[in-house]
Design a protein around this nucleic acid. Structure first.
Lengths: 205, 205
DNA sequence: CTCAAAATGAACTGGTCAGTTTATAATTAC
DNA sequence: GTAATTATAAACTGACCAGTTCATTTTGAG
């Protein structure tokens, strides 16, 4: 029992399979990805893959969960919560837009929406580890703002969801319906600043 | 040439096929729906179906387009554009929420998002006949509001997209990720009123 | 009634894919 | 160095599905 290294999750090739799966799922979607493709991309035999994961769905869930966690960890801690309020709002909105427009953000959303009817845990799982987390962070910040006297908010949950939606205005539909591939910095700024202006007009003191 | 009746679109069973297709696509999605199922639901042989439509995608596009048109026609003309501005905004937001939460609205969105990667015309088609139409209507109304002195707006497009997004706050994610099936009138009112309040705080005079 | 156009059903083609099996080879542990 | 664990390749099962074909029946117009 060599406990010198941190216990590897499941076996030598576990992460290798997960990596291959992430690549293929992200580029082909859930239905579009074949298990043979995933095994090939992972550099692993199909039999090995099936020795780690009971089926394709489970494998996909694992990929989605892992990746969401990774993204959430990355995104949160480069915002200075003590900067002036408009600055903080601007930065948060920018983070959200950047995530949404990233390859991963776009694809994971597309897949979760497309499959969450035939595959309900998936939608729930994503909702819990995405939107719910974001909302919690926003509410935290709003509470500070109210305490400081910068904001006046009655329904915190609604305010958080409003800010979230505002940050995606115009960009989001164009993205999910494949009207455009990506946005310039200026296009993003227009929406982000619009969101901040609107939010402060409503909830600023 | 009996022109007494309005020219039937293509043949006796055209609409019958379309109806069956709508039913099956809406309940099973695009990939999930089999052409055999559709033919069965339409009460038509597969050969007949293929004599009307070249392939499954074309059939789906036809269903989506027809249904969007139908919904758009229905929704638009029961709003009194000359009522007080908050009233009009409230009514428009309510229409949008009702559409979004309808079986058709939910499913067509889910399918278009899920398939628009492998099937790009679909996304574009839906965007043009959905969000773009809504935005145009909103901008029309905003222009009237500005002329009347009720509103002050610089970026009309952005304002329209913002109002659209605000009207879906909180409700939309819960729907597409299958957290809830439907909303009460009160739940909808909370969001709709929140959208109107926010919009007027920013753009009201 | 007649005949052509439209519709039927059932079989068939060619393809894809998830998941299993098996005999063999590589790794690792002791 | 040997035995046990883990991985491999490749073939295979069973199922599903889009789209075609064709011999037969139904429909409807004149």
């Amino acid at each position: 029992m060599p406990d010198g290294t941190i216990e590897p999750k499941k076996g030598r090739k576990f992460d290798q399979v997960l990596d291959g799966a992430r690549t293929v799922f992200l580029s082909d979607g859930f239905e579009g990805a074949s298990v043979d493709d995933i095994a090939r991309a992972a550099g692993v035999s199909k039999a090995t893959l099936y020795s780690y994961f009971p089926d394709k769905r489970f494998l996909f869930m694992q990929v989605a969960k892992t990746e969401c966690q990774r993204q959430a960890d990355l995104a949160i801690e480069n915002i200075d919560m003590d900067a002036p309020i408009r600055q903080v709002l601007h930065d948060i909105a920018t983070e959200m837009v950047d995530f949404m427009t990233s390859q991963f953000g776009k694809q994971i959303f597309r897949i979760c929406v497309g499959e969450s009817d035939r595959f309900p845990e998936l939608g729930r799982e994503f909702y819990e580890s995405g939107p719910v987390m974001i909302r919690a962070k926003l509410i935290d910040f709003f509470e500070k703002g109210v305490a400081r006297g910068d904001l006046k908010i009655d329904d915190f949950e609604l305010a958080a969801e409003q800010f979230h939606e505002l940050s995606k205005a115009d960009l989001f539909p164009k993205l999910v319906f494949n009207i455009v591939e990506d946005f310039t910095h200026e296009e993003k700024e227009r929406v982000v600043n619009g969101a901040v202006d609107m939010f402060m007009a409503r909830y600023g003191t």
